[in-house]
Design a protein around this nucleic acid. Structure first.
Lengths: 194, 194, 194, 194
DNA sequence: TATGAATGAGTATTCATTCAT
DNA sequence: GATGAATGAATACTCATTCAT
């Protein structure tokens, strides 16, 4: 009996929090978030017991959305370069099209408010897509370490590229291509001279 | 507010602020920073009119220190790979040896409290060293854009590597090498097969 | 708000409230009381329209239980001293055996949340038992005033004794006897020398 | 340098807190106390780090004032009865003349917010005056226990009397006398028949 | 009748900044 | 210049009470 807790309200709160964190920073008041979500101040704490929990929930929510986007149009039979390019484009597009989610994610990453598990999940994003069928290998690192590390570097390069595209919108597409070129040189097969 | 006298106090405040931001986050109280610097609460505002100014001053101060470190041992006559490796090692070493400065810089970068000029300065770091005598070139970008962008990517890769070295200390040196390997493939001359 | 059905739930709420007030203070949340009573938050307000009413109901409930205990084993034909001693022991035993009720009663007494009638009822407790067949008399007070006042003093002495017994459990029985000795000297017949 | 912390403000805060606790209960907002003391909200927390500390400080302050009043007019050469009567009158007068302090003390006593030491101090009040030159003795208790306990009972009887005097102002003096009569019978020398 | 989601006023405490000393 | 007392706006979180289900 009594009303069930509303998934709509939860989603509204996550959306409002994401946008508010992006525009006002993580120190934005919870009351503002509640107002933007169209619920009472106290309601926020019915869905998230405290602000730190909200931080974590927003991060996980945004990461899940990003992960979904990354697999769009994935074709396991395409060439490695084509698969990598798709991943790249999906990631970059997501960052450009969801600037609030992107900004919130970045702020949360360095906030010190996330659990190690949550931070790990971010690094494993690309790995989860499973696109690296011929894993890269670095001297001194085993296969798992190499794969995870190259994913992290991919993420770093992508983020830097998204940043440039955002702050230099007129040359955005050129930066997107340049970023991929940089990345592909680094992780593509070496026998390019033949 | 006339310019205060003691350069010592200013340095002490910057140092205390850097360490405090690293350990407590940017929301650390100014009173704590003042205490760690060994001065009174109000004194801080004699040297920095408000907290935002302090943010900017810390960022610039840390960046200047980093820039100095990057040139250590620089030899303009060495090969591009050797010069790049030196830059890489200098950067990584600085990040490892100054974790507080490194953490504060990262937090400030995404804080939204810095001016565009301050953020730009961070990307131009390596460019300032002038090591790229044979500038890289990306399709669709002119030489200046290409150089600046490749510097930004270098910074991104370095930061990701420092992060991995810090969180996986037992394999730190392997990650350092792997990060450089990744970078060199991306920016090194292509005719490596010959 | 029609009168609710379940007397069980009412009793459970009173019991839970008594224990909660004793352990957490009067500012304990009603939601906690409801949970301890095994009912929903809103249900509490079906039985008690607001928290203040609950305060009063708990007080009256506890007082009624105490009053019942006071008459246990009462023998109207026994000597005054024996009757007084029985009353004393009944009171003290109740306080020791029902620490939560005892504590709640004390907190409520000074809370300012009770009506004058409810506070009066506490003073009249012993009078109700009707043990004072030969009423005490104080100069300047009429018989009714004297009786009521001596009952109030009896209550005060008892409470102080219970407090000492609780905080000095090893000498509890000695304090019980001492308290009675004190009381009996004060209210017993004066011709003790004969 | 800088202003020294003001003893005046501290006293004003203690006074305002005492009166506010008496009239509004211990749950009175700290902002109200600050306003009544004529200082800013934050200033209260400069003098008392949190509300619990304020509770304790008020209690100790009030107790110290009461202790001072108890010794007024003390004459070590007077008879035990005269000395007891003086103590009695001093105590009762203080309670009547400082109803706010008296009420605050009572509320704090049962609040659970005081340390055991603070509570003890309240029981030792009369003992400190050192009026009991011929200590009372109860069966089963040693001299120290007896003295302390009889002091506690004295306090209990006094408080009950003050309560009656306050709620029955027309017969106040009669209750004062009656209370003392009760007390003196209980603790006075037994050889009253001679 | 019973439930518990929803509400929003209320509160202790913090902290950047000012200013009297 | 240096100090730290004073300020009061700001904020996370609580909780008595209401009401849709």
């Amino acid at each position: 009996m009594a009303r069930p807790r509303s998934e709509d309200k939860r989603q509204a709160l996550l959306k409002a929090a994401t946008e508010t964190f992006a525009s006002e920073g993580l120190s934005a008041p919870t009351s503002l978030i509640a107002r933007r979500a169209g619920v009472a101040e106290g309601t926020l704490f019915l869905y998230f017991p405290n602000k730190d929990t909200l931080f974590g929930a927003v991060f996980e929510h945004v990461l899940a959305e990003l992960a979904t986007c990354l697999t769009l149009g994935y074709d396991a039979t395409a060439s490695l370069k084509a698969r990598t390019r798709l991943l790249w484009d999906n990631y970059v597009n997501w960052g450009i099209e969801h600037p609030a989610a992107y900004a919130a994610m970045n702020q949360l990453s360095v906030s010190g408010k996330l659990t190690p598990e949550q931070l790990d999940a971010a690094n494993k994003l690309c790995a989860d897509v499973g696109y690296q069928q011929e894993p890269i290998h670095f001297a001194g690192l085993n296969t798992e370490q190499s794969t995870e590390f190259s994913d992290a570097l991919l993420t770093a390069v992508t983020n830097a590229t998204i940043g440039y595209m955002t702050s230099h919108p007129t040359a955005a597409e050129a930066y997107r291509g340049a970023g991929f070129e940089f990345l592909w040189r680094a992780i593509g097969p070496e026998e390019q001279c033949s």
